[in-house]
Nucleic acid binder design. Structure first.
Lengths: 210, 210
DNA sequence: GTCTATACGGTGATAGAC
DNA sequence: GTCTATCACCGTATAGAC
């Protein structure tokens, strides 16, 4: 009763997610996904016509996951600016601690086919206009800076959360002598580090610098 | 006389660099490299036995380029801490403005084969022990922080320089409405932005925060 | 729905003429 | 050194039995 009803479709989707996120569209093999799901290649095509179709389902889901984290936090009223920042940072770092390959996956695949961003976003239910106009303008107001200032802020915030995971193998090797546990410990500690850093920078700016 | 002596080997290397950096090892096609170099596939194999051999040459060269930028700046005496930071930030952002696909290329390929980092580094002439011990300890001294503090600092610095290029297509679309010129203008302005940001943060820390 | 067997196209690599 | 032609393999996708 515990291992019953395997629900092939879900098993395939989980296997595909795992393989695609780690290897990307180009690097992934249908055979590997089939093995991961303990089925054969033919079944993959039975459920999801083609490799690309399967990929798009995974990709748009993950995109949607990423954007809900940030837009939800920015818009939520009744939350102080400081706590918004902590919400976003914690949300992302927690998410990436669970899915270390996710950041690079998104960056890699968007770069592979940049033209498709808009259509992928629509498929994921991410509201483009909303992000660009509502959430973003709101951020600028909160920070009391111009549009470029808000851009710098959000890019800085994302950089500090995402890059340490996108470069995980490199940083782990160079700065942590290959010790993964040490790096994970460091990344957990980093949640507060980054939030403090960004909040401090915002205050610094609002006080006119220096 | 101006277009003479094409020097096939160099032409191939330039073409391979262009294609590999944009598409990665998995995404690149030997045919595409041949087309880019205006020769045929057979000649690629004549000069460089295999796709992987050709790739490794390109990859290790780019790795070496990246590390020389940072380690050179950190070690150079007679340069104030503040100017070291500006050297690094300017070095990287200038490099990436010229090679926008370079950051993602490095991240992607290291993630594809993390075990190879050490051997690639040796091939590139990057001195591993040097980075880890000399340059890094020196940084901690300069900042007057512990080892984790130095790690955060260097990771923050790299994040702010590298991520905006690794995520270029996404940021360009979402925050700049697809206008590449606007984003490039923003990135040029960002050289001082990032340097000021990091220097400010270091001072803030040294003054005990708050 | 799930399997095995196979078709089909593309890609890295080689053979051999010039 | 450079080319054309071709091989050998691998990966996606389909056919067809059960």
């Amino acid at each position: 009763m515990t291992d019953n009803k395997p629900d092939t479709e879900k098993v395939i989707l989980e296997a595909a997610r795992k393989v695609f996120i780690k290897k990307g569209l180009d690097g992934a093999r249908m055979q590997e996904i089939a093995d991961e799901a303990n089925i054969n290649k033919a079944l993959l095509h039975y459920y999801f016509r083609s490799k690309e179709k399967l990929f798009e389902i995974i990709f748009s889901k993950e995109i949607s996951l990423l954007f809900s984290t940030i837009s939800g936090a920015i818009v939520s009223d009744e939350v102080s600016f400081e706590n918004k920042v902590r919400l976003i940072v914690n949300g992302y770092i927690n998410l990436f601690l669970k899915n270390p390959f996710l950041p690079l996956f998104i960056l890699r695949e968007i770069s592979r086919d940049p033209e498709n961003i808009k259509s992928i976003f629509e498929k994921s239910g991410v509201d483009f206009a909303f992000i660009h106009q509502i959430a973003f303008v709101k951020l600028a107001e909160l920070l009391n800076v111009d549009i470029d200032g808000a851009r710098h802020f959000i890019i800085n915030l994302l950089s500090l959360c995402i890059f340490p995971f996108a470069a995980k193998p490199l940083i782990e090797k160079v700065l942590f002598d290959g010790n993964e546990q040490e790096y994970i410990r460091f990344l957990e500690e980093r949640r507060d580090q980054v939030a403090d850093f960004m909040i401090g920078a915002a205050r610094f700016k609002q006080n006119g610098g220096r």
